[in-house]
Nucleic acid binder design. Structure first.
Lengths: 345, 345
DNA sequence: TTGAAAGCGCTAACAC
DNA sequence: GTGTTAGCGCTTTCAA
């Protein structure tokens, strides 16, 4: 149509016969303008099909109306449910959401954090890739406590005093283990992921259940899968069961390990629950179909509360000294994958 | 530490004892500077922990080193695999990826496109929510052919002459249908999603297979699920099978419909493939476990090629008049969910 | 309620 | 190789 130059607020102002400032006030919806000016400006906007340049606005106003959510992977129903909840909540406030993935690599996480800071996002929801056994570089640590508002979700970092919203992992794990023990299971094999804070808490709950029942547990009954792929979890499961054929129940600490485990069980022609009981963290679309007993985390609620908290932080000009650590209760959904151990029957 | 003011390139320049321009050249890695200056600037950067302001850089350079990928949902293995492939490719070029979801709502798609334009992303990978039966507002249409580089993926919009990378849906659907027909199936029920271009092509392939065999097909054997949820696909499947108890094979055009269908089949205690055959588009983690025969699309390759093409478009200053429409071949993965129809045995 | 002017932090153009 | 200057498009004083 007209010429190719990008249309700016000045063009709008000129056409509307007002100053740039007034046009800006109308489009940006701030300050006060007369009804008449407002109309004329909107008319001009429509006529020119003016699109405000958010980059320029961001530079000037020092706020981008964007938050970020950092998760390990986008190919995981749990993370994905979190992202979904965050987006939903953010949309209500008119914020955009930037999704970042770490592939559970803490270096990538820090890179993202740095980049997001440079991009001037207003805040971050962080499901950290930090592992309990990692040594946290001092410089990194400083980063987590910078001025950028952050709400931790699911996983926390010891020594970093910032808001955390997560599941009550210890209790839920205690109850789940007790549920299996009450059925008579003693050889309960754990298949875990890397050493995230959540995993630690769940293992503590497991151990506490044993301790409380006055039964010794076998430290070798804990297997770890470092790479979250079907192939890897299948392999780990395979070796684990080879080494410990006396295991009567499998307690899987992460849904993304489940299909690999099931594939190995299928190969061995082991039936669930006749040959082995199965209990899994996080509900999956297929868990209902396969009748798998599950610990379901309130991830939608976690995402919602985390986002709300983040907006509180963004709202406050000064950094607040006090922080919350909220724990929400998961729910044990009993289906049909757990029964008495074989030898008991 | 020092005072709270944000650190800019001017601070770095001052500390390094060079001009702002030189400092900028070092940090932004452009132009030429002496080794000596370079060192001094980097020293200053480290000392001050300077983080460049990407907003300012974007405003000035008119490029954000960011592309966006728009998909229907983030809770779908197919979309998610696409996003993954795009991210991987973008990372190589040092680009960031903004993930946007439309929930298959064309209005949301346009809103995103507008916003991304305002945000000055450098380009967009678009899995459009456009449905064949929608009437495309002229103004919308103009948007798709704007200056913003876009590469369509998976789904195309008729009349929009831009690059498209997608599966060869017609052929693959033809082959899959023929595979079932060769087994003796005549009552093949389709469970489809909304009327996306891909769905249309797949149905055409299905019809062609019938036509080619000189067999009439029954138009009522096509069911549509408008809302992609387990609950909904389960319900549609239920009513569909009630109405057509003579169906011997189910041909599901989208993986996210599958678990709902399986749930209904389970409720009816119908065994696969003894009671009914099943063939599904898109591979899922659980398809291998459940031995479901699948049409696997080369989504990773699609994402890769689309991203590369997008970078080509971004590279070229003028809008190219010619566009590509590339079609990649899906693969039929034969497992055990299809067999002879019951009456044949 | 409005307009003029300043300036957010950076890079590009141009001179030296 | 380096510095000076202008200005990306907007919002925000400040004064009228």
């Amino acid at each position: 149509m007209s010429d190719d130059r990008t249309i700016t607020i000045d063009d709008v102002a000129k056409l509307a016969g007002v100053s740039r400032a007034t046009a800006g006030r109308v489009v940006g919806n701030y300050g006060s303008v007369s009804e008449k000016s407002r109309e004329r400006v909107w008319d001009a906007v429509r006529q020119l099909d003016y699109q405000p340049n958010l980059i320029a606005r961001g530079l000037r106003s020092q706020t981008t109306k964007t938050i970020a959510v950092i998760v390990g992977s986008i190919r995981n129903t749990y993370s994905t449910a979190l992202v979904y909840a965050v987006e939903k909540e953010a949309q209500k406030k008119g914020y955009n959401v930037l999704i970042c993935t770490t592939h559970e690599d803490i270096e990538k996480e820090l890179k993202h954090l740095k980049d997001l800071n440079s991009r001037k996002v207003d805040g971050v929801i962080l499901m950290s890739a930090y592992r309990a056994d990692a040594n946290m570089d001092k410089k990194y640590k400083e980063f987590y406590i910078s001025k950028l508002p952050i709400v931790f979700v699911d996983r926390s970092i010891p020594g970093i005093n910032r808001d955390v919203i997560q599941s009550e992992n210890f209790d839920a794990s205690y109850k789940a283990t007790k549920y299996l023990m009450d059925m008579g299971h003693r050889k309960i094999g754990i298949i875990a992921t890397s050493n995230f804070s959540t995993v630690q808490e769940r293992i503590k709950g497991y151990k506490a259940a044993f301790a409380n029942a006055g039964i010794e547990y076998d430290e070798s009954l804990i297997a770890s899968v470092d790479e979250l792929s079907d192939k890897m979890s299948r392999k780990v499961c395979h070796e684990f069961l080879e080494e410990h054929p006396d295991i009567t129940a499998l307690y899987i600490l992460n849904n993304s390990l489940c299909s690999g485990v099931l594939l190995d069980l299928k190969e061995r022609q082991m039936k669930i629950p006749q040959d082995i009981s199965l209990l899994v963290w996080d509900d999956e679309e297929y868990n209902e179909l396969l009748d798998i007993t599950t610990i379901e985390q309130p991830i939608t609620e976690i995402g919602k509360q985390a986002t709300r908290r983040l907006f509180e932080l963004i709202g406050e000009p000064e950094e607040t000294t006090d922080f919350e650590c909220k724990k929400l209760d998961p729910e044990l959904i009993i289906r049909k994958s757990c029964t008495l151990p074989k030898y008991r029957k």
